[in-house]
Amino acid sequence: MAVQKLPLAKAINASLRTALENDPKVLVMGEDVGKLGGVFRVTDGLQKDFGEDRVVDTPLAESGIVGTAIGLALRGYRPVVEIQFDGFVFPAYDQIVTQLAKMHARALGKIKLPVVIRIPYGGGIGAVEHHSESPETLFAHVAGLKCVSPSNSSDGYWMLQQAIESDDPVIFFEPKRRYWDKGEVDPSAIPAPLHSAKIARQGSALTLAAYGPMVKVCMEAAAAAEEEGNSLEVVDLRSMSPIDFDTVQRSVERTGRLVLVHEAPVFLGTGAEIAARITERCFYHLEAPVLRVGGFHAPYPPARLEDEYLPNLDRVLDAVDRALAY
């Protein structure tokens, strides 16, 4: 595969195809992933090329999907399962938290659970209830799981490759509102480590840190701020567990200010953890309290209200202003 400009959904599709080609133990499982190619077409064409035995349409039972994936992993397979939407993962939450996350430790390391759980997540597509949520904190909080989220096509391709190669369970959060954003994918590149953050834009006055769907918002906020004379750095965190605090720390030591942005509710969110850690690490570098922009402590609203619920350019820049005012 040559260098291509692909939408995120197609980059993930290409990544799954590569994994299926490279390792006969890789399986793709989920609801409607076969003939339909998934409701977002992320698995489009895979069953046709790799067969029903490797690209498996499952019964509509999320706990069953994850529970059987654990059994398949114990048998030596590397299942990549799809949860159709973020809000549907909770029937599987018990299997993920009590079984998948802990089994390696319970066996004192003697067994491995290379299971990837892909979850299209986040809002912004005008969907009905349970189709727009950002539950990443609920997984990042659980030892034994790793959580990542690509923000662009290249990361979509490479981070999924790395997640599948990982011997640990990885929850792979796909920003569904970015599925159609195109970006370059170079299959011969040397990817950054899976859990490393990346400086997406350099700046000097303040650090914006985000992952998944909010990276784009932050990049746009940084562009807008530049017009107003403020130089913002943008860190694409990429991984919510583990979090690359070192990269954030180095950035904040330069800028002195940090604003964290995610769609998930602010309360006890990823941003809260980063704020606490960075405050501890960078106390003498900080010129302002670490601020957070995110969802509210309310159920994800009906679609007609989601633009007000989701962090956008204005809300990010409002926080930037407040931080710069110190």
């Binding site: 994850v66 529970g67 059987t68 059994g71 398949l72 114990l74 009590t98």
Partner: peptide, 13 residues
């Protein structure tokens, strides 16, 4: 919980 693991393992078999 383990009953699902058994079903999955058997699918692998």
């Amino acid at each position: 919980s383990q009953v699902l693991h058994a079903a999955g393992y058997a699918m692998g078999v």
